[in-house]
């Protein structure tokens, strides 16, 4: 299986963006690009072709689920796996995000020291789904 290397992080909160960048780049040795909103994520994903998109659920403008739907409509981004990130933690919501095509859900707050390994775990299991 191809290793997880390039991650596009879509998140409107700059502090969380910065922590996730350290968590993935420095701790996890990945390459990270960040976007502030769903619209710019659609463009960046098509151009940069990340291995994975880490997508915040609730953002001003287009929210996470809508962004995912649009990613699936674009030829260039149709196949890119998406993991949702959210502070919403009802178990049925997790199921919901999976059912609409999310690979899995990472719950906020996350631990910066283990975020990368958490993503890798999900990544490695993705073909079993």
């Amino acid at each position: 299986m191809q290793a997880l290397h390039r991650v596009l992080h879509v998140e409107d909160d700059p502090s969380i963006q910065e922590v996730a960048r350290i968590a993935l780049e420095v701790v996890g040795g990945m390459q990270v690009a960040s976007c502030d909103d769903g619209q710019s994520a659609l463009e960046k994903a098509a151009e940069w072709q990340p291995d994975l998109i880490l997508l915040d659920v609730m953002m001003p403008g287009i929210d996470g689920p809508t962004t995912l739907a649009r990613l699936r409509e674009q030829e260039a981004t149709r196949e890119i796996p998406v993991i949702f990130m959210t502070a919403k933690v009802q178990p049925n919501e997790i199921e919901h995000y999976r059912s609409i095509g999310g690979l899995d859900v990472v719950i906020k707050p996350f631990d910066p020291m283990t975020l990368a390994s958490q993503l890798r775990e999900i990544w490695e299991r993705k073909d079993e789904r």
Binding site: S15, I16, M58, P60, A87, P109
Partner: peptide, 20 residues
């Protein structure tokens, strides 16, 4: 609600889990 949501999602990561 959006303001509260931001804090809910971030405070724990920065060491304020109770506030989150």
């Amino acid at each position: 609600r959006q303001g509260l949501h931001r804090i809910a999602g971030s405070a724990g990561t920065f060491g304020y889990p109770a506030l989150g």
